[in-house]
């Protein structure tokens, strides 16, 4: 592994991402969990930025940290969960499966990191410089992947219509 400036920045943000992810699932207070999750999103977005994916990095913040987490925060605040005991659970098989899945995830990440740093991909692929820009993402989205893209918009439309129907029932 080479200790270049970029690698050091990426490793720093990766460490923050992992640390905040662990903090997020271990905190008692849901609001604190949400805050650590935002920190996690930020560091993941910084990693995207170091990999020259500007568009994905910004969308990560705009959509997840900006929109979804605000709604999340709203729900938590308005529910105002005072009772911490409700949030603890003691089902052992869940813990067991969680540990196994975490080990699997860690090993796959470790293998990727090992091959990524020691193997052939020592430097960033030059093609990646242009792939992450909004122009290339847009071009791919509207040519190669136009059908799935339209399909996704249809699914979202169904969601919007569903929300309106639900809200109307409540007011009538």
């Amino acid at each position: 592994m080479q200790w270049t400036f970029e690698n050091i920045v990426i490793i720093t943000f990766a460490a923050i991402a992992l640390g905040s992810a662990v903090m997020m699932i271990t905190r008692r207070s849901p609001v604190v969990s949400v805050l650590f999750m935002i920190l996690n999103f930020f560091s993941v977005s910084a990693i995207y930025l170091m990999l020259r994916s500007q568009f994905v990095a910004i969308i990560q913040i705009l959509v997840y940290a900006g929109a979804i987490m605000v709604l999340f925060l709203f729900v938590i605040m308005l529910l105002n969960l005072q009772d911490d005991k409700k949030l603890t659970e003691n089902i052992s098989y869940k813990k067991l499966s969680a540990v196994i899945m975490a080990l699997l995830l860690f090993s796959s990440l470790a293998i990727t990191a090992y091959y990524g740093f020691l193997g052939k991909h020592k430097t960033l692929n030059p093609a990646a410089e242009t792939q992450g820009t909004i122009e290339s993402v847009g071009r791919e989205l509207y040519t190669t992947y136009s059908f799935p893209f339209e399909l996704v918009s249809l699914i979202l439309l169904a969601g919007i219509v569903g929300a309106i129907v639900l809200a109307q029932k409540k007011f009538e």
Binding site: Q54, A65, G66
Partner: peptide
């Protein structure tokens, strides 16, 4: 001068809520 400047602006304004 990032080439997603406007999205950057919108992303940060949406964080102002926090």
């Amino acid at each position: 001068d990032v080439n997603v400047g406007i999205l950057y602006l919108l992303a940060l304004t949406s964080l102002g809520v926090y």
